[in-house]
Design a protein around this nucleic acid. Structure first.
Length: 111
DNA sequence: ACTCTCAATTATTTTACGTCA
DNA sequence: TATGACGTAAAATAATTGAGA
């Protein structure tokens, strides 16, 4: 975000953290949400609706990079195994690989 | 229909840079 | 003048969304 002025201009009230400016312009009816039965993964939701994103540790990133060097793609099995090793959800591993591939295609990144 | 991958976008965190006391 | 706290813009990147195979 933040690479273009005009998105959100809102002087921080007091602290410089927790800037959660969420504007709800259009409230259009969406489809009925599916009742997802809590799939037991290691998600620690603090029941706040806060979509905190995890920062991977160096160990995790390092291992992921290592695997990426071997294969750019993951089989479901590898995904599962890797997720278990890193103590992450398969989804996160998958996402990491997706983003990694995307970055590789980007002209400026090969450094 | 269902599942999977990818491109584009979004949202949050981290870093770099500037200002002021 | 140098140093540190504070604030914002920009960069990095995890996560979501939507389209296509």
């Amino acid at each position: 975000m933040g690479r273009d002025a005009g998105s959100w201009h809102s002087p921080p009230p007091q602290s410089r953290h927790h800037c959660k400016i969420k504007r709800e312009d259009d409230v259009r009816s969406e489809e009925a949400e599916k009742v997802s039965s809590r799939i037991s993964d290691e998600e620690e939701e603090e029941d706040s609706g806060a979509r905190k994103k995890l920062r991977l540790t160096k160990e995790q990133s390092s291992l992921l990079e290592d695997k990426f060097k071997e294969h750019s793609t993951l089989n479901p099995k590898q995904k599962q195994a890797l997720a278990k090793q890193l103590n992450l959800r398969p989804r996160q591993v998958e996402v990491w690989f997706q983003n990694r591939r995307a970055r590789w295609r980007t002209p400026v990144f090969h450094g």
